[in-house]
Design a binder for these strands. Structure first.
Length: 344
DNA sequence: AATATGAACAACCGCCCGACT
DNA sequence: AAGTCGGGCGGTTGTTCATAT
């Protein structure tokens, strides 16, 4: 049985909001709040709009302290870091950026940041290739395109993401910078590990004792500010603690991606040696040395699909964390282009 | 000056999930 | 337990503006 539409589509205005509509909506919410029912709200104030549309307009535009445009370098870094870490969870990312809405960040990523990143990667690698070719020529290699790095039909020029600043930790917040602590926390939250330390559940479905999903807790209790989609309810301690814990886990993972991790056991390096197939498609996360070491140990073909498996191994708490990278960066930049940047 | 193209942003759509009955 | 409803989310589309030809 299909769902009843949330509003009478025929009697609902679409398209850009007029200043009058904005004023009506803003005035009402500032005076009475949403009343906990967006669907009924437009009727109350005589707006011919869908309740969802009102909600979106309020959250993305009319709400106080909203910033539009003018993203700073720091914000760029945070967005990139979190995207790499958790994928396209815009509401969570927005929760880390005061005054930013998920919609804004999503648009910013899709229209600018993604291109900026790809552009930088290509530039860096073209520069690296150029210097590499020069060195090969110096060494007397008549065909520098077939360098030592390039033997075995491997690609030595895997693009790297720019070094991203880790999200700073507060001194007051508990730090989860070792594997054991994180595991303890995750177990406490309802996860379980297999014997080889893999977490076998999806953290997003973890439930708090009060029955609220942790994702919901994150949405409801952003760390720094009010998320565009966050509820306006006051916080409870559990949720805040969890959000902080999650935040710190993400921070630890970001550090790991950048090679600054304190994780002793499950590292990318270890995986590269123990299970090289699972690294296919994520070489850009490895250092050059690791990459070179790895060359010759794997079959030639990269399989982007394996990134999901890879991500679930390296970052167990978040299933398919690299989906974002796959779907965003990698789809934009075809596999072949990634393998031979600057050539295609 | 006119047109084409691309970038940026706002808004909509459809789906999922939790709460409620 | 099953059905309904509303809130919330991510993806996509539509519109406007700027720039290039």
């Amino acid at each position: 049985m299909g769902r009843a539409p949330c509003c009478d589509k025929a009697n609902v205005k679409k398209g850009p909001w007029s200043p009058e509509e904005d004023a009506k909506l803003k005035a009402y919410i500032e005076k009475h709040g949403t009343g906990g029912n967006w669907i009924a709200l437009p009727q109350k104030i005589g707006l011919k709009r869908c309740g969802k549309s009102c909600r979106l307009r309020w959250l993305n535009y009319l709400r106080p302290n909203i910033k539009h445009g003018g993203f700073s370098e720091e914000e760029d870094n945070i967005i990139c870091s979190l995207y790499i870490s958790i994928g396209s969870r815009w509401s969570i990312i927005a929760a880390q950026l005061p005054g930013r809405t998920d919609n804004d960040i999503k648009n910013y990523w899709n229209t600018r940041l993604k291109k900026k990143l790809l552009g930088k990667q290509r530039k860096d690698h073209q520069a690296r290739r150029a210097s590499g070719i020069k060195q090969e020529m110096k060494r007397g290699n008549a065909n520098p395109m077939v360098s030592a790095d390039n033997k075995n039909n491997q690609n030595p020029y895997w693009p790297e993401l720019p070094l991203l600043a880790p999200i700073p930790f507060s001194n007051q917040e508990p730090r989860f910078n070792d594997h054991a602590s994180i595991r303890k926390l995750l177990i406490k939250l309802g996860g379980r590990f297999s014997e080889d330390d893999q977490l076998i559940r999806n953290a997003t479905s973890t439930q708090f004792p009060n029955g609220v999903s942790y994702a919901q807790q994150l949405y409801d209790q952003p760390i720094n500010n009010v998320s565009s989609s966050a509820s306006m309810d006051t916080s409870n301690d559990t949720a805040v603690q969890f959000a902080q814990a999650h935040y710190n886990i993400e921070g630890a993972r970001l550090q790991m991606v950048q090679g600054e991790s304190n994780f002793p056991a499950v590292g990318i390096e270890e995986m590269a040696y123990n299970n090289p197939q699972r690294l296919d498609g994520l070489e850009f996360l490895l250092s050059d040395d690791m990459l070179n070491d790895r060359i010759g140990t794997t079959s030639g073909e990269s399989v982007v699909g394996s990134m999901v498996e890879m991500s679930s191994l390296v970052y167990p708490p978040m299933a398919s964390n690299c989906e974002g990278i796959q779907q965003g960066l990698l789809q934009e930049c075809s596999l072949e282009e990634l393998r031979y940047p600057g050539i295609l």
